[in-house]
Simulated scan of single mutants.
Amino acid sequence: MILHRIARLVLLAAAALAFWTPLLAHEATLGVLEFREMRPGAFIGRWTMEPTVGASRVDLRVPPHCLLRLPELNCGDKGLVGQITIGNLGADMSAALIKVIPLRGEPRSYTISTANPVVTLLGTDAPTLDTWLELARTYINFGIDHILLGADHLLFVLGLIWIVQGGWRLIKTITAFTVGHSASLAATAFGLIGVSERPLNACIALSIVFVGVEIVKQQRGEIGLTARYPWAVAFSFGLVHGIGFASALAGLGLERRILPAALLFFNVGVEIGQLLFVLLVLALIWAHRRLGAGLPRWSAELPAYAIGSVSMFWFLGRLVRVLAAA
């Protein structure tokens, strides 16, 4: 079938690229920098989550009236207000959370990302409209980046498209996956459930192995569990993948007042990224129909074994890390 042919092409390309993807696909390149006020206008800064690039190489730029010589930051009578940015953001670090803990009042959090490289620190606890717009822009883009760079999530979705083949069944299946990972993402972000990240990543890889086996069954003429109940399988594994999405936010230590909004915007970004990927695959299917291209018969089973081999490679690699940490 046409869908199978285009899916083979996409799966082969994804499998080839996946071997170059790090085993821990959900460990975000984030940094968390905390500024604690010791006396009026004087702060001590420290990285509570050190970025991949290395704290000494981060090009942090503070408001002009502030003097930064980490771990010390002196802002005088004006206090820590104004614009702050990281000049080399995007090279090895995708985002950074700036946490300000004043002598009086509630802590404040600001997220710098490649999509939102400059944030404005406020001297008040009350968020403004600009604060919410900044938060939306940052976390929507962060969610899009997270899903589009998550090769294992995309490979799982691609496997679902392969098995379900299209139509309303595909819409229901993708919707079930969305509902599942949205629910577990929210539950994890609010601390209702908690799973260690390394075992979770191994389980995510194992879910892709399951889909790979289901594809092989389908090619042999067998009706697998995913073919019978695609939305149930998508929802169940969506719960697992959603906890993986939440790991991108877990280490940030977001303050409770902005957590619901950050979670909402992040999830919107994830859904946008997922939709873009599905539309891309469907566009390739349409293009294949227009061109009428085909593949050699001997290549029919390669993608199914490729997706299973790549995901098993991920699973074994992540399992080794779990056992090493035990």
Rank of each mutant, 00 (worst) to 15 (best):
M1W: 07
I6K: 08
L12K: 00
A13V: 08
A14L: 00
L17K: 00
L17C: 00
L23K: 06
E27C: 13
E27R: 15
A28D: 09
A28T: 13
T29D: 15
F35C: 11
R39L: 12
F43R: 03
F43N: 05
H65W: 10
R69C: 14
L73A: 12
G79M: 00
N88L: 06
D92W: 11
S94H: 12
P102C: 04
P102L: 04
R104I: 13
P107Q: 04
R108D: 12
R108A: 10
S113M: 00
T114P: 06
N116Q: 14
L121I: 14
G123T: 02
L133R: 15
I147M: 07
H153R: 12
V157H: 01
L160Q: 08
I163F: 01
G166T: 09
G167M: 04
G167H: 05
W168Q: 14
L170Y: 05
A176I: 03
G180H: 07
H181P: 07
T188M: 14
I193S: 08
S196F: 11
E197P: 15
P199I: 11
A202D: 03
S207I: 06
S207E: 04
I215A: 01
V216C: 04
G221Q: 01
I223K: 15
G224E: 04
L225S: 04
L225F: 14
T226K: 04
A227T: 08
G238A: 07
G238N: 06
G238Y: 08
G244C: 02
A250W: 08
A250C: 12
G253H: 03
E255N: 11
A261K: 04
A262Y: 01
L264H: 07
F265E: 04
V268S: 06
E271G: 05
I272E: 06
L276S: 13
V278K: 03
V281G: 01
A287L: 15
L291C: 10
G292C: 07
P296H: 01
R297F: 10
R297C: 09
R297K: 13
A300S: 14
S309P: 08
S311P: 00
F313N: 05
F315K: 02
V320N: 12
R321W: 11
V322L: 03
A325N: 10
A325F: 01
